[in-house]
Design a protein around this nucleic acid. Structure first.
Length: 450
RNA sequence: GCGGCGGUAGCUCAGCGGUAGAGCCCCCGGUUGUGGUCCGGGUGGUCGUGGGUUCAAGUCCCAUCCGUCGCCCCA
């Protein structure tokens, strides 16, 4: 019989069990962080109706959407009326609009689910991936202090994740628009083009970016481009940046409002106890954060800036204007868990996890079956996680199983131990063994597990 | 959607006209109740697919599919 080559479609992350444990541990940590700030869980379906899903997207996004269709509809040649979600924000908007009367505002929700993008898979670019989102949605208004709370959550979560030190980059789109306008880049489209070039500051040197800016025809000459980049690529402390901006003499409404907002957010973040060095005003970030209207965030791991932003977010004026006439401003952020994890895996910062709280009860031979089961049941009754390998006569094989399965404790009990009413505990990491009385077995194991 | 590079064992790859290889992984063994090291043995490939050139094709040519990286866009 011809075999079909077993392989996953491109652009998905599939893990071995011990890596999956590490991934789940990461998700658990994120979830705990979200919950500590009072965010409530919701889940939405993997697919939405096409009319809901396509409201926000232009033709560009539509190409990246997977459509879902029943066999019957397909056979009848009908157009698909459902599609897989490509982010969690559009489903959130639909959810809030649909359940508006049942929700308490400001509505604080977290959502950790998979999303789908029909684009060409690349390293770190998945077609199926898990996003971990939090958002706060206000009714009519949402105070600016919520914008300051987001970095505090990032600080909590990435502190708990312990992937090394990190920096939360902060900017404000109003301020940026006002600044660009004040320095000669006026209008939405020129600004969008300019931002695309500015975003490459981390890849290209400043002169190259300046050349590209001039070439992009956004209204800048060489001197103007360099002056602009000098402003954006500001390396000073937050207070100095704010002071410098205020002293620029630019006087348009977006600039004034944005600067004021940015100052308030910086002060709020500090008051929430986020260490000063973790928050950095970075006027050059904004790309990919197009639908945000005020505060924007991007988080980088200091030791691995090449990973790019591991957590992005921002403020938007009106979440669900396509679905309801209520005005629902919000602020949120998103952790791309799949990309983050796969990159940490590549960087060797995470890997196969042991199962330090699992015990393997070995079976010496087939005369010991009942005894083995009793010991295992006794340990489970004490709250321990217990596995049994039914392979009589092959202790070596059972220990090898434990070793490879990441199990750190084995219990051995043969004739000698039965006669003495004891059992052996073997630590798989050191190989050390100790004999303990059977009644104290569970207690001793718990003690060894710490 | 556009461009670069590449498809040989589960994985990483060598072989570049003359009978398919290595390392790792996996399985078994190295007698009595002990894993990770070591030693020995073993499983596993129509060399992506289809044509063509040749006495002879993983090896050269063409097409095609798939993968991968970059562009676009984005987590």
């Amino acid at each position: 019989m011809a075999l079909i080559t077993p392989r996953t479609p491109a652009g998905v992350m599939e893990l071995l069990p011990r890596q999956q444990i590490a991934f789940q541990r990461m998700l658990d940590t994120i979830r705990r962080g979200f919950e500590r700030y009072g965010f409530l869980p919701i889940e939405t379906p993997v697919f939405e109706t096409v009319d809901v899903l396509l409201t926000k997207s232009g033709g560009e996004t539509e190409k990246q959407i997977y459509f879902v269709q029943s066999t019957g509809a397909r056979q009848q040649g009908r157009e698909p009326d459902m599609a897989l979600r490509f982010d969690l924000t559009v489903p959130l908007a639909r959810y809030v609009a649909e359940h508006e009367r049942g929700l308490v505002f400001p509505f604080r929700r977290y959502q950790m689910q998979r999303v789908y993008r029909g684009e060409r898979a690349q390293k770190g670019r998945y077609r199926e991936f898990t996003q971990c989102d939090i958002d706060v949605i206000g009714k009519d208004t949402l105070p600016l202090l919520y914008d300051a709370e987001m970095p505090a959550v990032i600080n909590q979560v990435f502190g708990d994740l312990a992937f090394g030190d990190f920096t939360i980059n902060l900017n404000n789109r109003k301020l940026l628009a006002g600044l660009l306008a004040g320095l000669g880049v006026d209008g939405a489209e020129p600004q969008r083009l300019a931002l695309r070039e500015i975003d490459k500051l981390d890849k290209l040197d400043r002169e190259a970016v300046a050349r590209n800016l001039v070439a992009a025809d956004v209204g800048l000459d060489v001197a103007g481009a360099e002056r602009l980049l000098g402003r954006l690529d500001h390396q000073a402390g937050n207070a100095d940046i704010l002071a410098d901006l205020a002293a620029l003499g630019i006087d348009n409404a977006p600039f004034r409002t944005g600067l004021d907002e940015l100052g308030q957010v910086v002060a709020g973040v500090a008051a929430l106890g986020v260490p000063e060095e973790r928050l950095r005003i970075n006027l050059a970030i904004a790309r990919g954060l197009d639908y945000y209207t005020g505060t924007v965030y991007e988080t980088l791991l200091n030791a691995n800036p090449g990973l790019g932003s591991v957590c992005s977010g921002g403020r938007y004026d009106d979440l669900a204007s396509q679905y309801t006439r209520s005005r629902l401003p919000g602020v949120g952020l998103s952790i791309g868990a799949t990309r983050l994890f796969s990159q940490l895996l590549d960087a060797g910062l995470v890997g196969a996890e042991d199962r330090p709280d699992t015990v393997l009860v070995t079976q010496f031979d087939d005369t010991m079956t009942e005894d083995t089961l009793r010991v295992a049941a006794g340990l489970r009754a004490e709250g321990l996680t217990v596995e049994v390998q039914f392979s009589p006569g092959k202790i070596a094989r059972q220990l090898k199983y434990a070793d490879r399965a990441g199990i750190r404790f084995a219990v051995l009990r043969g004739e000698v131990e039965v006669a003495r009413s004891t059992a052996l505990i073997k630590r798989m990491d050191t190989g050390a063994q100790e004999e303990v009385p059977l009644p104290g077995l569970a207690a001793r194991l718990k003690q060894m597990m710490g």
